[in-house]
Write a protein that binds this DNA or RNA. Sequence first.
DNA 1: ATTATTTTATACCAATCGGTCAAAAATAAA
DNA 2: TTTATTTTTGACCGATTGGTATAAAATAAT
Lengths: 196, 196
Amino acid sequence: MPGRNRLFDEEKALAQAAEVFWIKGYEAASTEDLLAAMDMNKGSLYNAFGNKRELFVKVFDWFAQRFIRNMKEVFAKHANTIDAIREIFLHVAYADDPMEHTKGCFYVNILGETTGMDPDLEKVAKEKLIEIEKLFYKELTKAWKAGQLTSSIQPALLAKHLLNLWNGINITRRLYGEKELGKLVELNLQLCFSGK
Amino acid sequence: MPGRNRLFDEEKALAQAAEVFWIKGYEAASTEDLLAAMDMNKGSLYNAFGNKRELFVKVFDWFAQRFIRNMKEVFAKHANTIDAIREIFLHVAYADDPMEHTKGCFYVNILGETTGMDPDLEKVAKEKLIEIEKLFYKELTKAWKAGQLTSSIQPALLAKHLLNLWNGINITRRLYGEKELGKLVELNLQLCFSGK
DNA sequence: ATTATTTTATACCAATCGGTCAAAAATAAA
DNA sequence: TTTATTTTTGACCGATTGGTATAAAATAAT
């Protein structure tokens, strides 16, 4: 019954495609760009993934799955929720690779590109960002109940504030150096978590 | 010597083009889109503005001139600097037209689109945003010297924080309703200006 | 009215876009 | 080994992209 085996590794292909979409955006990423990065031919790509849009959604979901898993691991690693939040934001300020400052947040980029132009992709990007807020909310509530939260701000509002900080810092990282970004993060942490 | 008079009004043409670039972005705004919005023919546009890129730069500079002038007027209007800052950010939260939430900040949009892809336009967008920071800094310093600033944060850092808030809220406005955006703004003002 | 100059209008251009198609190559069940 | 099925490959497609060319229309100085 079955035919020829696939020459490409789906996981690697998705990772390479994610890189292209992340840097160039959805529309600006041409099929040629994707083909080159994924090391595939046009026919193979369309046979395996349908079309550019379906590929993007698959790539975006794959990326989001890894992203949220990594974020959860940071929370799991720290006994103190505030320490986890600090690590998450300082990791934006002081990136592993300077290119990450150029790339920004994949979610934010796609939301910016598609809002008002492509309702379906806009909705997908929104959902991913709200997922971050929900994770913040869950962890903040946990810390609140444990009496661990040194903040007078309600968890629901604080979670939104942190997502807003996430959005902001992922734009601002294209303007300032790492030291200045670090100061902005520390300021926000101090303002949120030092008072009572 | 001179020939035919222009049928179009340059100011109006720039305003219409700005609207297209603002909503669609630089690359996604096609010449056909621009032509339709500006109510011109292709030959006229290229004769008057050179090419798409030159048009964009002219549009962007024209927009920035109006933008910074409006912002300065808000500061001039208020005796208290914090009141001016409140008006500026609440005007983002509660927009005159709901479409403004979709459009976001023209500067932020272009910075996001061009970073790492189009160094020249990236630089232009960066400069416009830094101009906002500089205006915040100037006004905060003025308020500081007047003993008017109820904040323990240094003006230089506070100005960066406000630009970061600007960047963030102009993304976040695509996620939340006006009431929630208003709460985020008030929280930030309280955190920045209520303590000592 | 002629003339030099400018703008307008539209047909046209090569390049690139996302996507299709058919043939060749590879595979495992029969 | 034959056969049914799948993947790979690259030529090809119409549509759209930013930009150009040319001629008509309009203008003010001569």
